[in-house]
Design a protein around this nucleic acid. Sequence first.
DNA 1: TTGAAAGCGCTAACAC
DNA 2: GTGTTAGCGCTTTCAA
Lengths: 338, 338
Amino acid sequence: MAEVTLRDVARASGCSVATVSRVLAGTRPVGAETTRTVREAAERLGYRPNQVARALRSRSTGTVGLVLPQITNPFFPALVRELEHALHAEGRAVLLADCDDDPATEAARISAFLDRQVDALLVIPVDERHSRDAVARAAARVPLVLLDRGCGPGVADAVAVDNAAGMALVLEHLAATGRRRPCFVGADGTASAAVERRTAYEAGAGAFGPTAPGRVELGDFSVEWGRTAVNRIWPSRPDAFVCANDLIAVGALQRLRQLGADVPGEVAVTGFDDIPLAGLADPALTTVRQPVAELAAEAAWLLARQPDGGGAGSRRTVRLAPELVVRASSGARGAPAK
Amino acid sequence: MAEVTLRDVARASGCSVATVSRVLAGTRPVGAETTRTVREAAERLGYRPNQVARALRSRSTGTVGLVLPQITNPFFPALVRELEHALHAEGRAVLLADCDDDPATEAARISAFLDRQVDALLVIPVDERHSRDAVARAAARVPLVLLDRGCGPGVADAVAVDNAAGMALVLEHLAATGRRRPCFVGADGTASAAVERRTAYEAGAGAFGPTAPGRVELGDFSVEWGRTAVNRIWPSRPDAFVCANDLIAVGALQRLRQLGADVPGEVAVTGFDDIPLAGLADPALTTVRQPVAELAAEAAWLLARQPDGGGAGSRRTVRLAPELVVRASSGARGAPAK
DNA sequence: TTGAAAGCGCTAACAC
DNA sequence: GTGTTAGCGCTTTCAA
């Protein structure tokens, strides 16, 4: 069962390979009658264009590389899904790389994708600093869009949620529901989400009163760190734990319950991202929902509109507005759910 | 910055493109001196083989398509991660398809991958019945391994966890810790995991006593169904909820707590899969851990050893042994954790 | 051991 | 509109 090629179709329809190519690719106008004949022959023979040959000749593989730190990070699957759909809708296939949170692996994967002639790259960088070189090099060769996390200024186009706006929504909500002594459990390091959420908290928490913006403890984006942070902070009895992401918040929630704290009566807990786990926590977690579908659509669009040269046109960063999702973990005070 | 090609390297090292190709691909023996010169020139020019051209000529893209129902199913990310690593270690890249749990989309994605000349396919079928045709057709063209779920007998090689053994581990554990009135919350439909776990429960639950194997309620693999099932069954006071996967179990756990049931004192709850959520539930969920890394390794191995023809050699199904992970949700009776 | 030459299947100039 | 002709960059005969 040898593959059917363009030649076979040409032979069967009595015209040249060029004509067949034009009919099937729709590149140039072709006579109506010929078109019909060719279509019919292609159909009859079950012709399927060989995308590899097409790619070699046209210098476009119709493939984009999606490079991410760790697919097991619960925020990513939904994003990957939307990206896959958005790209597939444009007829592009997705090559996936999981970098194991390691910049060296990331550089290797990016390099391998370039060798495979991907048309473009979508990168969620592992690290703000250590990913920079590889990303910048790649961006010079193909259209590249940074997603969710930054990678230093001017390196590439980027699309991300507006972390500051999200944090502002949280603080506003907490203030409006009577919280007065918030604290912040964040992540240290230079990752853009970590920095931006932390900064936004510090900027906004001043509004809670003349006193300091409450305690700020920094660790990493993990459930475990959420638990630890509660151990450190709870003795000073804040009335709200503002967490830099949902994993931290879930850890905080767990530990607070173990300690017998009343959430949300005595203390509120909020997260960020709205991963699936957030809705399943008990009490369900108030959090900031990232507009995942929009992030994906915007990234796909940016990718499509970049010139192929990979030239250093002015880089643009698109910020998408998040949405506050109020759930039980920040419910009304004084009326503890029984 | 035009790409460096084999010709450039040949010119720079003073020999023919054929020789350069042989040196770099290591296909045929080449003189030591020549080898050195070529290597040096390639290095100096920063030569990177164009994988598309290589693929066209050698009829092998070094690419495998990974087709799955929904990346957002929390069991898949870990599997995808392991597969990506296993395949990348062999120098193969992974094309990802998310089928939105729709057989038609699945068929389209598989078809698109074949057009792209993937060397092989790894498929977690959407549906036992409705995925069958597309999978069988694809298996006739390239090596194909079914993962995690079956697709009818004899369709393709398959690798999956031994669901029956896993369920047996659960039942044994429950019996050993004194449970006597189990019930089963499963999923209906013909998906292999659903059927196998259900059957294994029915086969094993007889050991709990002469009476019927407790109630069996079937819905789908969701948290919501877990909650609903508890509403239906709890009034009859079983002392163990054996759930067909972790999502159902988490839902059951939530609802039981809302109803004021004491888990594990009064009733045990068990899951299946050991998704990340299982360890975070409260109480933490006793479950059956799938050997994800081994599943991935085995799948990659099966793929590699299949003849290229995609011929219908005898199909083999590999079953991997799961492991019971005992956590708080099935802890000792009568000593309710306070 | 090496080189020359023939393509892999397709698209894109360039003629007609 | 359509055919002819070159290749895309590489691997792989086939000779030497």
